[in-house]
């Protein structure tokens, strides 16, 4: 691989733009196709298929076998609540490869001292979320316990195709949350996408253990898909 190609590829990855490296395994010839260039490429169909699935692999072409290495943007974790659980959840999710953003308008919670290495937004979800571009590569958790903060965030998440949505709170808390969201127009089908109480039931007690249970649930959704949990 030419260093120039590697550098161009790393630039796309840093900007959260998808790209594919096409390698002719016989000759070693190699090129980079950026997401924006796929439509005009001779391998368009194969490239689009690979980008959708996110899976690298071999393709037969008129010019011989090529290997397509797919680089999709890393998954993202967006959290409302700069709370104790989030302090554990953020770094753990980063270890798993997630870009992490934490949102909390309560400036006593959302301090750089408590959240040194994650993106932190000390503002209301309504202000922050539209600019984040929540997408299918996003897992969304609401952890504040405060309907003024969590409800608008959930309504935003439900209107996007996040691969995971989880909400902290007991079954009773969640039941009243569902009533509130329904009164704001969310359909039952949409509300059924919320995982609550959040996380796999592993008897988690400490904030770090709760973070593990949440990330286990998110990982199952990411890797096993829709039917995995319910």
């Amino acid at each position: 691989m030419k260093l120039a190609l590697l550098n161009a590829l790393n630039e796309e990855r840093a900007a959260r733009r998808a790209a594919v490296v096409v390698t002719a395994l016989e000759s070693g010839a190699q090129r980079l196709v950026k997401a924006a260039e796929v439509a005009g490429d001779e391998l368009r169909e194969a490239l689009e298929k690979r980008l959708r699935s996110g899976k690298s692999g071999n393709e037969e072409t008129p010019d011989g076998k090529v290997f397509l290495t797919v680089f999709a943007p890393p998954p993202r974790l967006v959290v409302t609540g700069a709370v104790h659980i989030s302090q554990e959840l953020g770094p753990m999710a980063q270890r798993l490869g997630y870009d992490v953003a934490i949102i909390d308008p309560r400036t006593a919670f959302a301090t750089p001292e408590r959240f040194a290495n994650v993106k932190l937004f000390a503002d209301w979800p309504d202000k922050v979320l539209p600019d984040l571009g929540i997408d299918a590569h996003t897992a969304f958790c609401v952890l504040t316990h405060d309907p003024k903060i969590d409800d608008p965030a959930l309504l935003h998440a439900l209107s996007k195709d996040c691969f995971y949505i989880g909400a902290l709170g007991s079954k009773r808390t969640h039941a009243s949350r569902l009533e509130r969201l329904k009164s704001k127009g969310a359909s039952d089908a949409r509300l059924a996408r919320i995982h609550a109480p959040i996380g796999l039931d592993i008897g988690a007690v400490s904030p770090a253990e709760i973070a593990v249970s949440i990330l286990a649930e998110i990982t199952a959704r990411l890797r096993l898909g829709d039917g995995a949990l319910k």
């Binding site: 590697l6 590829l9 790393n10 990855r13 770094p91 980063q94 270890r95 490869g97 290495n117």
Partner: peptide
């Protein structure tokens, strides 16, 4: 803290 970035 992030996962090691092998290509970088």
């Amino acid at each position: 803290m992030a996962q090691e970035d092998l290509l970088a």
